[in-house]
């Protein structure tokens, strides 16, 4: 464990807590893409298949349970909770996330570290996580005024993977044989997808104006 990875995990945890806070306290999911939340639930489900077979550490297991539990409960809230689901913007959240899942699955079947079920699922979860934010970014561009919690949620979600990139650089130089091209390239693509969001988020913070993404 290094400081970059810990910072990344804590930032990721905060993004989830901000979203749960928003949904649980003000019973609203306005501006949140259900498609992205479903993709994230799938990402964790396919990435943490080994949660009960490969014990890494208590920390690792607890964090996996938190991410699995929170992502599925957010999907449940947005689909089932009578108050929350009313604030879900069904008409605007129209990204066909199936067209993200299929290419990631095909790519994982071709590009993986080892052609086993677990490794293919691992690669699939990395490719899918890289593009999972797209429905949310599209929804943000359609949503006229983005509320602070939603902006903070997306910002933290992007920042966590940026910390992971520093973690991979650190581990590459400190651990022999630590090479995971699939993870590195997926993580880099994922962070780059946030680039323009970061740009507008930083500007709105600097000029102290409401965050607004150009259509």
């Amino acid at each position: 464990m290094n400081i970059f990875r810990l910072a990344g995990d804590m930032t990721h945890l905060m993004s989830v807590l901000v979203l749960l806070l928003k949904i649980h306290t003000i019973k609203s999911c306005a501006g949140i893409s259900l498609k992205t939340q479903e993709l994230y639930a799938l990402v964790f489900a396919t990435r943490y298949l080994d949660i009960f077979t490969d014990f890494i550490s208590v920390y690792n297991t607890i964090m996996k349970l938190i991410f699995l539990g929170s992502s599925f409960s957010i999907v449940w809230y947005m689909r089932r909770h009578k108050l929350v689901r009313r604030s879900y913007d069904k008409e605007q959240d129209t990204f066909r996330h199936f067209f993200l899942v299929l290419p990631c699955l095909l790519l994982a079947l071709v590009m993986n570290e080892k052609f086993t079920f677990k490794e293919v699922m691992w690669a699939f979860s990395l490719y899918l996580e890289a593009v999972a934010i797209l429905p949310q970014l599209v929804l943000l561009q359609r949503t006229k005024n983005i509320d602070n919690l939603t902006g903070q949620y997306v910002f933290l979600l992007g920042a966590y993977r940026a910390f992971y990139i520093f973690n991979w650089i650190y581990r590459y130089f400190t651990e022999p044989h630590y090479v995971h091209w699939i993870t590195w390239i997926s993580g880099l693509v994922q962070t780059l997808l946030y680039a323009d969001f970061f740009y507008y988020y930083f500007n709105s913070w600097k000029n102290n104006v409401k965050l607004h993404l150009p259509a």
Binding site: R5, D50, D54, I56, M63
Partner: peptide
């Protein structure tokens, strides 16, 4: 053979 290192990151 080297035990395949389980993926230790989240």
């Amino acid at each position: 053979d080297q035990e395949r290192a389980a993926h230790d990151e989240l």
